[in-house]
Amino acid sequence: MARGVATRLSRVEPVAVRAVGALALASLAATVVLGLWFTPEDQVMGNLVRLLYVHPPVAWVAYLAFGVTAACSIAYLWPRTRSPFWDRLGAASAEIGVVFCALTLATGSIWGRPTWGVWWTWDARLTTTALLLALFAGYLAIRRVTVDPAARAKRSAVVALVAFADVPIVHMSVLWWRTLHQPPTVFRPGFGDPTLATPMAWTLLLAFCAFTLAYVWLLAHRYRVAVLEARMEGEGLELALAERRAEAGYGEGPGGIEGGAGSGGDGPGQAPVPVGAR
């Protein structure tokens, strides 16, 4: 089944990924323009409400990414669906999740400072998110130090599930811990919130779509990296030997090889992640 998914993915992948990338870029640009200039200010929060179009969508993507990692881990541990596909997809998603989780904390801090007067507060959601970041940083760490691919896949899947099971417990305990002292302080954005003006609601929806598309796009590219890494692990030694031999033969150093491979590799048909796209 996983193989089927992978095959289908590879068939439609070049076109679909590029389409998703283009959509992600366009919608992100639209979100920025709408969010920064065309949406009204909030009566209570003033200009700061514009962070609404960044912070909650980023947080949503972080949770989504970790959820995908957990789902992939289950699929990997289940003997019938076990396949390297799930392992790689889970790893790719976790890495993106860590990036978005860190961004969630950063943007939350930037929002919290003018709103609450502090960079950090021991709110249940903040604390849970911080622990989540630490948990999945551990997941990435264990992937990095394990050499054998099968063992790594199993161990990291278990780590991901254990980490994911911890999230509700952490959240509930911290919630209870803090609510003994103070009412929840986080401004609750809700799409159905009647206080949210219509342009704001639509921009928020757009922002959610934009960041989710960006996640899907990054995931597709990061998955390819995972596949190439696995290939590298398999062929690493032979390749290194071949390279050394080639170096000795041509006598012109690694530059010659790089040039030769580069001309075959990054042809015009390739769609590398545009580094300077923004």
């Binding site: 992100l28 920025v32 960044v54 980023v58 993106i96 990036v99 860190a102 961004l103 950063a106 943007t107 930037i110 960006a214 990054l218 590219h221 990061r222 390819r224 990296v225 190439l228 890494e229 290939r231 590298m232 062929e235 390749l239 790089e258 030769g260 491979a261 580069g262 001309s263 075959g264 590799g265 990054d266 590398p272 992640v273 545009p274 580094v275 300077g276 796209a277 923004r278």
Partner: peptide, 26 residues
């Protein structure tokens, strides 16, 4: 911060991918 981080991360993924591509023979 958000846009810069995402751009940097995307760039890093792309760089790793191109490097690996070269390494496994283009």
């Amino acid at each position: 911060v958000t846009l810069a981080t995402l751009a940097l991360y995307a760039g890093w993924v792309g760089r790793r991918r191109r490097a690996l591509n070269r390494a496994v023979g283009g």
